[in-house]
């Protein structure tokens, strides 16, 4: 779109900036503050420079957690984005069933995350849970509390169950927003269903898909409550992703310095990847 230059647009944006900055700037300064200081108890802080950053970045524990996190997020994105898109494409556009679909699909999103973790905890238990018992009776040796692989499987399954609907809802809204005239023109031009998808639907969904990818990337990278309640990070540290690791350091050991540093590094990693995603997906808009 050819946008016109208009500095007065700042007025339209001002309320948003004020609200968000009010909430963002002060806490950020606090975290930065902690990350570069050392505490000797009793609130005595001394300047520690970048020692915490070095410590965190060099720790193998951090590397492990980071790698686990990256793998997890990659799997999540690879499943949820295409799956959400396909389901949105398959959903009815008009009629009574639309309401039914939308409401039912939204339900997993509305459950508080600790309840999600708790219900899957029981649901997947080998002896007393529907999933656990079901899989075992089908012949699989399934016990997520002991087996790292099935712990991963269960965690991924839980996340897919929980969050795919977000992608579906976004893509569905994006799809119904495509004006009918595009489909009519495609019919008149004799386009196949695949051509319609490739040349009309997918391009028009680009922005919505970007939002979905970024949202899922960020939220899965920060995942904490559900995993903590489901596996506690185990067995061992098989499912100890970054947030859980951070939690162990900060609260368990009350090391504010390393925790602060790790938070910042964490944030910067997400920032970097998000920025890359965003730039990649939006590079065409520069015209």
């Amino acid at each position: 779109m050819n946008k016109q230059v208009n500095q007065k647009a700042w007025f339209l944006v001002l309320p948003v900036v004020i609200l968000v900055a009010f909430n963002a700037v002060i806490p950020l300064m606090t975290v930065v503050n902690y990350s570069v200081q050392e505490t000797f108890g009793d609130n005595v802080f001394s300047w520690a420079g970048v020692i915490w950053f070095e410590q965190v970045l060099n720790s193998p524990r951090f590397h492990d957690a980071l790698l686990r996190q990256m793998l997890f997020t990659a799997i999540i994105l690879a499943i949820e984005i295409p799956l959400g898109l396909i389901i949105a494409l398959a959903m009815p556009r008009k009629g009574f069933w639309v309401s039914v679909c939308l409401v039912l699909m939204a339900l997993p999103l509305l459950i508080p995350w600790n309840v999600v973790g708790a219900m899957w905890n029981i649901f997947a238990l080998p002896e007393i849970g529907l999933l656990g018992k079901g899989l075992n009776s089908l012949g699989f040796d399934y016990n997520y509390t002991r087996q790292p692989l099935t712990a991963w499987f269960t965690t991924v399954l839980m996340d897919v169950w929980h969050w795919t609907s977000l992608v579906v809802l976004l893509c569905y809204a994006g799809l119904v927003s495509i004006p009918d005239d595009y489909y009519r023109a495609a019919k008149i031009d004799g386009a196949s269903a695949w051509a319609v998808f490739r040349f009309i639907q997918l391009p028009k969904l680009k922005r919505v898909l970007t939002i979905a990818i970024l949202l899922r990337f960020m939220d899965s990278f920060m995942i904490y409550t559900e995993v903590k309640v489901l596996t506690g990070g185990g067995p061992g540290n098989a499912t100890t992703f970054l947030s859980i690791d951070l939690d162990k350091i900060a609260l368990g050991q009350f090391d504010l310095g390393p925790a602060g540093a790790m938070s910042l590094i964490y944030f910067l990693i997400i920032l970097l990847f998000s920025w890359l995603f965003y730039t990649l997906m939006m590079r065409n808009e520069a015209q």
């Binding site: 968000v20 806490p27 975290v31 904490y224 951070l246 944030f267 998000s274 920025w275």
Partner: peptide
């Protein structure tokens, strides 16, 4: 500005709890 807005979702809530 547009990208900065999104950055506010990039930190876990735990970071903001005490300062808030």
């Amino acid at each position: 500005l547009f990208f900065w807005l999104l950055t506010n979702r990039m930190a876990p809530a735990a970071v903001f709890a005490l300062p808030f």
